[in-house]
Design a protein around this nucleic acid. Sequence first.
DNA 1: ATTTATGCAAATCGTTTGCAAACCT
DNA 2: AGGTTTGCAAACGATTTGCATAAAT
Lengths: 149, 149
Amino acid sequence: MPADLHTELHGVVAERLQGREQRYTANRRAVVEVLASTDRPLTIQQLLDRADGLPQSSAYRNLTVLEDTGVVHRVAGSDEFARFELAEDLTDHHHHHLICSACGSIEDFTVGAELEKTIEETLDRAATEAGFQVDNHRLDLVGHCRRCA
Amino acid sequence: MPADLHTELHGVVAERLQGREQRYTANRRAVVEVLASTDRPLTIQQLLDRADGLPQSSAYRNLTVLEDTGVVHRVAGSDEFARFELAEDLTDHHHHHLICSACGSIEDFTVGAELEKTIEETLDRAATEAGFQVDNHRLDLVGHCRRCA
DNA sequence: ATTTATGCAAATCGTTTGCAAACCT
DNA sequence: AGGTTTGCAAACGATTTGCATAAAT
């Protein structure tokens, strides 16, 4: 990630936290830092491995705050581990996931803008008719990654 | 569910289990029965409430077997509870889910066949290029149900 | 008869929480 | 100072498992 985008990211996160009376502490910065440096959602363990010295409980607590603030997004995979990524509006990178049901890994993945638009509009219309208010969609592909195929 | 489809369902499940050296016991039948009688994925607790006398550990163990055998499908929601539904090829009912992030409820939901086909083909093509073998897709809408809106 | 499923209770493990010390404003 | 976050360790709760008994083949 380029230095300027990087700085910008922290600025936006700080604002978003302050708007909810939350502080942008060193630990929280570390979590955001790690999540910004990868191309896929991370488990708590992966996050701890990459954020040296971060205690487990702080990871959990800060991820909760960051999720409530809309900075981080929780991704449900096929295994028992929760995974986290930066919210899409912070990365400007709308994407989906390739979930390997063999090893549990999750990879990012995008589809063309036209299909994306069609999907979004159609789903939204159908859901609204069902009395459901859509906040976002979750379009994931479950299967086998290159290594597990 | 009509009586004949019902009988047919048990026949198919029995075959599928036997093909994997598994028995179609009373408990397993009860689990399938309950899942067939509802229009949405159920949590373990909901399943236990509807299958009188079924011990919790048997529910877990049998759901594992039924999932491994492809009879039952696990659905990840927005809360901490695993939910289960019959596999789509047993019900002939390809559908998606409306997940309420407020109360955690999950409702079934379908979209038109044309969009479904477009989505499937496009995703499959894109994923294959990424070296990923797609088994199925997961297209869920996250938002607020009528009661929680 | 032999293998597999059951049911209870105990263990497991990811996640949450109480509390006193460290930190930010 | 006054409130928040931290870090450790203990608690929690959904899920799993050991083991003796019952059921299925």
